[in-house]
Design a protein around this nucleic acid. Structure first.
Lengths: 224, 224, 224, 224
DNA sequence: CATGAATGAGAGTTCATTCAT
DNA sequence: TATGAATGAACTCTCATTCAT
């Protein structure tokens, strides 16, 4: 979900194996990517069929291979394409926030809203863990790095507490992804409410307020 | 990762389609499950081949269907088998904690350690999202419900702040899973350090300590 | 066309990717090879279809891949299989000859007769130059080496004139192959007549007999 | 390798389906033929791709069909083009020989040298057996006929011994082709040495010289 | 229980050729 | 002439599952 940001846009559709030279070619390529998003989103990578993608796109089977070398290739192109869409949606809302904590919350809200409107994106990106592990790893690593550098700056400015920014970045990303899964893909609760609750979690954590009375006990059971 | 807990244990290996009656049969069944864990862990569900599983187990292809009805069946059996292992490892350490916040951190640490020792488990359970979506959803939903009820009790006892416990449960689970991915599967940092940093995140959040001097604004960029 | 001679028969069908363990399996494998000989012989490697081979053999498409990894694999197995057949036909007739020159002529005759009865073999082995160049080269190199060593021995015994035995081996092999092409595959002249004429060529060459009168001139044009 | 000799040269490039009218067209046609020689030489007929030929030639795919009707067509054109090159190289050296035996040896030497400098030609012409069997057969038949008629004349002049000239022509051609394969394409021995040894084979055969002492028998093994 | 050969539907992929621009 | 996108028939290969022994 990010990071083609400062590259000079080498191709109109990142990841495509061939850059079309004519307008007609550009239309066909876009039709293939849209069809692939539908097909992969509905069926998942392995049950998706290239013949179905071309059928949805309204082109012949062979046309697929004019633009992509393989099923994996279009999947990868699609992941990058969708990542770009997420970035374009979320980035400006982060940039508009007054401080870092507000920024993280704005990003969370934006991410949640985007996921809800593009549920298939969630599945596609997640499945890349199994289809193209390197891409999956790179995707999350880059996102975490970016979050971490935001936190680092904020920490230096004194906006947030001291601590390991990388660990906190991964934790934050985990929160966003799982809230996205639960409340974006599966549920339909109001994103604002979710973010408000999670926001309190972020800003104050599980710790009781300093002025509230502490009691005692314990409890049990496992984790996820 | 859990919750076949209170079933009356109809078979020594939960999920197997047939309970072996002979000692030889039991050995074959166990060999198949071990082989499947390797094969699925290395190749993922779709690229794993039954013929490879039987080859690793040292039995004939046909023998597979004596114990399992299908490829999906052994995968599910395996997921339950592994979930039980995670639960048996994590649960007692949660139960031993003095209070809820300590419990969550103990669970996090235990989970991280377990993931590191069984990296293939992480992958197999994750892939169930695509192999058996209902099981995947149920797995995380049950885990979240359990965490939420722990938080609810703690909240009522005043151990933690007020707020929506389900949202916080999903957030916590997201933190655990992503730290598990980053520091359990991919990295080799000391789990204690990771949990300590994440613990400060949990207990105090991103908010600066009340006594630290506040400066001003800034921000930018997107989320995951 | 030779040279699995002194190996301890590692497999009933040299080159097959899998050795059948049951009688039924052996029958299927043989049926596939026979079908492949027909199909490749009639259509050549590239126009031959695996589906046609299995159809001729009376088995399902998938059964092909029980025994061979690819179209190239069965082609290679077939070349070895046929080479063995040639060897088994020609070798004893060479061994029965009284001296080396008679042996070479007996071999030539036997080769010619064999080619005539198995015209498809000729085409298949020849095509291996393009399908499996290493096999083709090895095939001819080994044959030439064997001929050369026969000539070497004969030379040391004084049965033939002094000279480079390798060059003469390749020359002899060229004669046999081209006479096989012209009079075995394409023509139907009596092999005995052909060999008698070629035999005079072998034993006395183009040189006029010592007692015949020499004249003068010259001439022109190219070679093959 | 020859014999478009007396046709009225309808086009600068024999075999091309269309004669270019412009200078630009002529350059494109020549670029395509050169590219085809490379591509067919490296990959063989079936693995060669039109798209690769056009890529090598630096023209668009569609341009190919301006000059050739099909893949087979350019292959044939190429074979004729190369045959002409062989002929032009070999013929004058045969014509310059003082007698028939010297002529055959001169031809052999010239052929060997040419093959060595144009290894891809050997392969391309050989493959025509499978791409265009009629052309292949005609090619060798014509060559043999020409050699036979030379021998016939020489025989009538008493330069060579009596015998069937056609059989001897095919034998000679076989020698040349196989020595070309072994010492032209695969090896790098001095052509003169090869021809000298083969020459002794031609002029005197395998027979021991009349004045050398005869010993006795022995033999074994098969032919090619 | 175990074996391993057989099955066959279905997938991805190739590429010579056509044609609108 | 030149271009390059579009075509689609045809092919090789995979593998979960069945079944006779």
């Amino acid at each position: 979900m990010s990071d083609t940001k400062n590259t000079p846009a080498p191709a109109p559709v990142p990841g495509a194996n061939k850059v079309p030279k004519t307008e007609r070619g550009r239309r066909t390529l876009r039709a293939l990517l849209n069809a692939a998003a539908e097909e992969f989103g509905e069926k998942g990578f392995h049950d998706a069929a290239i013949s179905q993608i071309t059928a949805r796109a309204g082109v012949a089977t062979g046309s697929f291979y004019v633009y992509f070398d393989s099923k994996e290739a279009i999947f990868q192109a699609l992941v990058r394409d969708l990542s770009g869409q997420v970035k374009d949606f979320v980035a400006p809302r982060i940039a508009a926030a007054p401080d870092q904590i507000a920024a993280e919350q704005a990003g969370q809200l934006a991410y949640l809203e985007f996921v809800r409107q593009h549920k298939e994106i969630y599945r596609i990106i997640d499945e890349s863990e199994f289809v193209d592990p390197a891409a999956y790893r790179e995707h999350y690593t880059k996102s975490a790095t970016r979050i971490a550098s935001r936190l680092q700056s904020a920490m230096e400015r004194g906006e947030i507490s001291d601590g390991d920014c990388e660990v906190r970045a991964w934790a934050l990303m985990g929160i966003n992804v799982f809230l996205g899964l639960r409340y974006g893909v599966w549920g339909d609760e109001a994103p604002e409410d979710v973010v408000r609750e999670a926001g309190r979690f972020i800003t104050e954590g599980l710790a009781p307020r300093k002025d509230s009375p502490q009691k005692s006990p314990a409890r049990r059971e496992e984790k996820p």
